[in-house]
Design a protein around this nucleic acid. Structure first.
Lengths: 196, 196
DNA sequence: TAGCAATGGTACTGACCAGTAACACCTCTC
DNA sequence: GAGAGGTGTTACTGGTCAGTACCATTGCTA
């Protein structure tokens, strides 16, 4: 299998895309740099000309994944400008979409696969996760939820759980109920005490 | 570091305990059989006399982890015999305890680390996860929850999420809120419609 | 005490992997 | 057309890993 080999895509981008695909499908540790280079239609030397090391490649993959997540957030906000409560619903839909085609969160997977990774990798993971949590809490707050942090944490736990569960037992497991459970949680937190 | 080396513990049990500890701390793929044998105070040959392969060792670790989980469930039931609702609260406490000292669920970690593992490993993981889900749903049902499966899925997602989140961002992340969020969910599902 | 089963120790094989060196090629620009 | 930067190719190093062969040792039992 090749990834855009021969197309007008720069080797660096092919390598990055291929690495993310293989890291996701086979796991980070199980994927060798040779396999990445070959699948990307290039060779190991070119890979090392663009990325100082495999760790650097991993960080670059995570940074691109973070950028993708930013775009998803922008799409959520654009779906209902000025209506944070509708954006919260759109966020649930967005996450539900993530559950369908992905093997799981690239950051969580990296955290599990590389418990003793270098500082740069760990920092990239924690920074991303904290950003997501903050952003979700802000959306809950803007939606007028009385306890925005608690709803945000509830939803964050459910997303993480759904993405992991899907890897462990597939789509038939609890991940299947994510949308329903998340909507219930939002409805409850929104109704328990209306804001003053 | 050695694991009960020299004590009156059979090599097989030392190997198993050490393997679980190292798999948890360093990751499965990052842990070599040499390291396991040495840390267990024995050698690789003895390891291979007890376990046909590293995969077989992994399966044995997961089976022991499943056995540990059974004991935790028995403790939950014994904490409030005949009072399933109190058992549900005890279950939350039990999970909260799990969050404190573990690196995460050994089954979920294995699923993430070994996406292309052999059938035996995959089957062990899915069987365990389905058993846990069924058992939790039964406890919710016995507690008189009107929608036991949905509460069970909500709680299952939150447990999975909390254990993963703890690995990714530590105890300061959403995992910190698990107990509070889980109790809220239980309270809501129990109150929304009392059973007939 | 003889024997047997379990264990310890050493050394090895074959495979894989991250990373590097040296050189050839191609394409674009000046 | 000449140089330069990016790319392709091959071959290599040093290290790690799973798994095995072979033999020595211990400890229990008959």
């Amino acid at each position: 299998m090749t990834n855009d080999a021969g197309a007008q895509v720069r080797p660096r981008d092919r390598i990055l895309g291929t690495a993310r695909a293989l890291f996701g499908r086979c796991g980070i540790r199980a994927t060798g740099v040779d396999a990445i280079a070959e699948t990307a239609g290039t060779n190991k030397m070119t890979l090392y000309r663009h990325f100082q090391s495999k760790d650097a490649l991993i960080v670059a993959c995570l940074e691109q994944a973070a950028s993708d997540a930013d775009q998803l957030w922008e799409a959520v906000e654009a779906s209902a400008p000025g209506d944070p409560r509708a954006q919260l619903d759109a966020w649930v839909e967005m996450v539900d979409g993530l559950l369908k085609d992905s093997r799981g969160c690239e950051f969580s997977n990296a955290a599990v696969e590389l418990p003793e990774a270098c500082d740069i990798v760990r920092d990239t993971i924690t920074h991303y996760k904290k950003t997501q949590r903050t952003r979700l809490a802000q959306l809950c707050r803007d939606s007028g939820i009385p306890e925005p942090e608690r709803l945000a944490d509830t939803l964050a736990l459910m997303v993480e759980g759904a993405r992991i569960s899907r890897q462990a037992v597939g789509a038939d497991g609890p991940a299947d109920s994510f949308t329903s459970c998340a909507r219930t949680a939002i409805g409850y937190f929104a109704s328990v005490r209306e804001p003053a």
